[in-house]
Design a protein around this nucleic acid. Sequence first.
DNA 1: GCGACAG
DNA 2: ATCTTGTCGC
Length: 236
Amino acid sequence: MPETPSDVRVVEAGPYGHRVIDHDWPHEARACRNVQKTLTTHVNTVDDLPPVRWLGGVDIGFEDGGNTTRAAAVVLNAQTLEVVDTALARVPTRMPYIPGLLSFREIPGALAALEQLATLPDLILVDGHGIAHPRRLGVATHLGLVTGLPTIGVAKKRLTGSHAEVPDKRGAWVELTDRGETIGAVLRSRVGVKPIFISPGHRIGLASALSFTMSALTRYRLPETTRVADKLASNR
DNA sequence: GCGACAG
DNA sequence: ATCTTGTCGC
């Protein structure tokens, strides 16, 4: 069984009825990295999803020069991409942005926004990486662990890993690898734009992560889930 | 020591 | 992420 120090706890019935990993929220970088190392043992990158009817999106913005975190959570009809629910939450920012520790800065706000949703998403596309992270614990993976919900990381820039050139054709993708592991995919979401980085968050594999992401793409570089959440989080 | 570095 | 207008191009 995985090691679970006192500051990391396994909870069989979390906020949404699923098994979740609860833990304290340190403010110091060293402690955050230690929590990440323990959390890694609980990540599931094998498909374990319900039928996806409601597709969620989460994105975070900031105000007051960063002192206030503005989090947006949205739910779209997975079939029609119609927006069925939205929520906006403002919470005081607790941590600065530190590469590799983004989740400790953004998740508190994300949780506050998710709590306000009337419709619980079956799968959430998060703005940021999933396991495509130095310790395999990007914001999407971390959010999946603490909510118990399936998540996918959709990032606009690379954090770690390397990859071949991506053909300039919509839907083309190449593997993103790091230290001998496949940690995600680099996807050309539309011709003529910079590719996006897709990686499993929690309770999903790379193939399905790519499939669901592509199902939410229309004519833009980013999937509708993150586009809708993004405008909510940035527009005052 | 040097370079890299999600949002 | 955020500070910020117009502008080049399909």
